[in-house]
């Protein structure tokens, strides 16, 4: 089984409570900065963002669903042709064919923001300001993830540094393969509802492999051909339909297209 890995997520929206632990766990793990006013969400860096969806019906038929959105680590139509990677002029974001992870190289990014324009998920964030931590708070910064400088773009990395640490550890122990639980993202680990599962979508031993085949699984904006590696599960039809755009009279959404 020498197949390349395609790390991905399955997020069970029936379980997700919208509590936001994943957002905070991501910020804590990845040294995401914060400012005095974070209420303008168009200027607020949240690699993981939990959206609140409503079904648009009046009281008391109203329904709400929460949808956590990390970077989708899009593969594109031919693996590697992610919307954002293909446009970056300086190769500051890259697609790893080994892991399927879309990286972001902060020290190479020169801040043209083309990648942001290309990402339909708004998963990319620009550092409009210098990151500033209040006196003393730099103490909690994680040395495994470098804080970003002003003027560059950042986004969810699937906690790539955790992959590297796990690989190093395995290598020292003379192993090549990582077990499913050796590499888990911070948000997955933190989620108190256990709504997020993470693993290799190509590996039939990992739970994501099975979960993505759930009849209620879908991905966001599949029709654009972005080929995301984050799957969602919802038993509510309106939520599944909210995952993509449909013409008014279009028939029921097709089932999730399986890639790989």
């Amino acid at each position: 089984m020498k197949k390349d890995k395609r790390y991905g997520m399955v997020i069970d929206l029936d379980k997700c409570t919208g509590c936001g632990s994943c957002m905070a766990a991501c910020m804590a793990e990845n040294n995401v900065p914060f400012r005095e006013d974070e209420s303008n969400k168009l200027l607020s860096i949240t690699w993981m963002r939990v959206y609140k969806l409503t079904n648009g019906k009046p009281f008391p038929e109203t329904d709400v669903c929460y949808l956590p959105r990390p970077c989708m680590h899009c593969g594109g139509q031919h693996e590697g042709h992610s919307p954002c990677v293909s446009v970056c002029p300086a190769t500051a974001t890259d697609y790893s064919l080994k892991t399927g992870i879309v990286s972001q190289i902060y020290t190479r990014c020169f801040g043209c923001r083309y990648c942001m324009a290309s990402c339909p998920y708004h998963a990319r964030y620009f550092n409009w300001w210098d990151p500033v931590w209040p006196d003393g708070m730099e103490k909690y910064l994680n040395p495994k993830v470098s804080p970003r400088m002003r003027g560059v773009v950042e986004k969810c990395s699937f906690c790539f540094h955790r992959y590297q640490l796990a690989k190093e550890k395995a290598y020292i122990q003379g192993r090549r393969e990582l077990a499913e639980d050796e590499y888990q993202t911070s948000c997955t680990q933190a989620c108190p509802a256990g709504a997020i599962t993470f693993g290799d979508l190509n590996n039939h031993k990992h739970s994501v492999y099975k979960d993505k085949k759930n009849p209620n699984a879908f991905r966001l904006l599949e029709r654009l051909g972005t080929n995301p590696k984050v799957y969602y599960i919802s038993s509510r039809a309106w939520v599944r339909r909210a995952g993509d755009n449909y013409l008014r009279n279009e028939a029921k959404p097709a089932k999730a297209v399986q890639h790989g």
């Binding site: 293909s86 970056c88 300086a90 020169f110 043209c112 550092n127 003027g151 560059v152």
Partner: peptide, 22 residues
Amino acid sequence: DIGQPLRGWFIFWHANVHSMLT
């Protein structure tokens, strides 16, 4: 317009031939 003007030349140095911006 670029966030890191001092790195503007990266566009030539680390050019990605697939990018229209390159």
